[in-house]
Amino acid sequence: MLELVTTKLEDVANWGRKFSLFSYPFVTACCGMEFMSVAAPKYDIARFGAEFPRFSPRQSDLLMIVGTITEKQGPALKRVYDQMAEPKWVIAFGVCASTGGFYQNYHAMPGADQVIPVDVYIPGCPPRPEQVLDALILLQERVARRDGHSQLRLKREKIVLEQARAREDD
């Protein structure tokens, strides 16, 4: 019975979370121009409840990696990610943040997922604003399904903990 209540409670929380994603735009490069367009009047990310960029990692729950991540930038990205509170979600905005794109060289990192886990990858160099909105909807569905990477990890850790406890009981 208690399990049912907590599950339903989490569903309600997730419903709330998916429409109030506070994003932290980690803007590094060209994609930032398109990020501006997404936030600006014509495409208006506000319609999806993610309009308010929070320039403090501690107050945000969606990390948008907008642009190329270089080796020099890597530690900063990891630090920003670590500072965010759980549960958190990550979107790799554009092909550079996803795989490095056509920058395959000594200083461009082949994708932000070399450093931190990523939930949704948006292709395109840079992606069109419509694609970004599509990715946001995709992420909202995952949030509601409890499929975000940090949600899954929490779930996994809980299972591991329960198994360990069961073994101790034996």
Partner: peptide, 25 residues
């Protein structure tokens, strides 16, 4: 240097026409 994407090294490995996308960025 946080966005050093090695335009020059990439350009040395691309044909003159292939450099255009790098100049865009």
């Amino acid at each position: 240097g946080y966005l050093h994407r090695c335009f020059e090294k990439e350009a040395e490995h691309a044909t003159y026409t292939q450099v255009f996308p790098y100049t865009d960025r």
